[in-house]
């Protein structure tokens, strides 16, 4: 762990990231840092590689080249004493993933468990907490997303917005250093996106480090403090919302914004 080269404030560092599926290059040479407490929105057209980029951050996708560092620690590989790289153990990867929370577009709640059990499951299995303690913590986080009364409901009984809020509670319960949102509202009916965006806004205000892939330009402009515009696997615009939305330097970014915002 060479901490010297990495400023401690960067929770996530992406370095020369490349990802190809077969011959199709989805991400080309992407590098950026994510500072603690920042709320970063990643926007771009479909196929720009936004989701792939996000999924590399918790190693659900393995990069073809480049590195990801979580708090200075490399993901997916270890550097041995002789300087050679070796693939990391699954246990280590799991430990690192536990520090990163992810909220999926399809919610991915486990249907055979109640809302509370969904939130408590990782606390029991990964953090090794007892059932009673995990249950208590789970209920706290369900209360935080305003769903305590649904703690014993199965996902089949919950609306899309409620399921996604449970999913957020599930990710939060692990007390991650950073939260990743993969188009968290794209699968929701329009009237339900509000409740989820509200929870996300609240988290941002509380200082949670968030990386949000989204189509919700309102959220990107008003809640995030940094916006990254991705086009065909390359970062074409990266800056505060006023700059990206107000004075974009990239022509494609301008086109994208005008087509999305009308």
């Amino acid at each position: 762990m060479s901490a010297a080269a990495h400023p401690p404030a960067a929770i996530l560092r992406v370095s020369k990231l490349r990802k190809a599926f077969g011959y199709h290059e989805v991400l080309r040479d992407i590098s950026f840092d994510i500072a603690a407490g920042s709320v970063v929105s990643i926007i771009g057209a479909s196929g720009s590689g936004k989701s792939t980029l996000l999924r590399c951050l918790n190693y659900l996708e393995e990069p073809t080249a480049g590195e990801i560092y979580l708090n200075g620690e490399p993901m997916g590989f270890r550097v041995k004493s002789d300087g050679k790289r070796v693939a990391d153990s699954a246990a280590n990867l799991g430990r690192m993933r536990a520090q990163i929370g992810m909220v999926f577009q399809q919610f991915n709640l486990w249907p055979h468990m109640t809302a509370e059990q969904n939130v408590a499951e990782a606390l029991i299995q990964v953090k090794g907490l007892g059932k009673a303690e995990a249950s208590k913590i789970a209920r706290e986080y369900l209360a935080k997303v305003n769903l305590l009364e649904k703690a014993d409901a199965y996902p089949a009984r919950l609306s899309g917005g409620q399921q996604q809020r449970v999913a957020i509670a599930r990710a939060l319960a692990m007390e991650p250093k950073v939260l990743l949102f993969d188009e968290a509202t794209s699968s929701l009916d329009p009237e339900l996106t509000g409740e989820v965006l509200e929870v996300m806004r609240q988290l941002a205000l509380e200082g949670m480090t968030m990386v949000v892939v989204t189509h919700e330009m309102g959220f990107a402009r008003e809640v995030s403090n940094r916006v990254i515009f991705l086009h065909q696997g390359v970062v074409e615009e990266d800056g505060p919302p006023e700059q990206v939305f107000g004075r974009p330097t990239s022509e494609r970014c301008r086109q994208f914004l005008s087509s999305v915002l009308g």
Partner: peptide, 18 residues
């Protein structure tokens, strides 16, 4: 089973056996 079910487990750090 949808892949997302497994990914949700991976995302919270669960080992594959769990």
């Amino acid at each position: 089973l949808s892949r997302g079910q497994v990914e949700a487990g991976l995302a919270v750090g669960m080992p594959r056996t769990t």
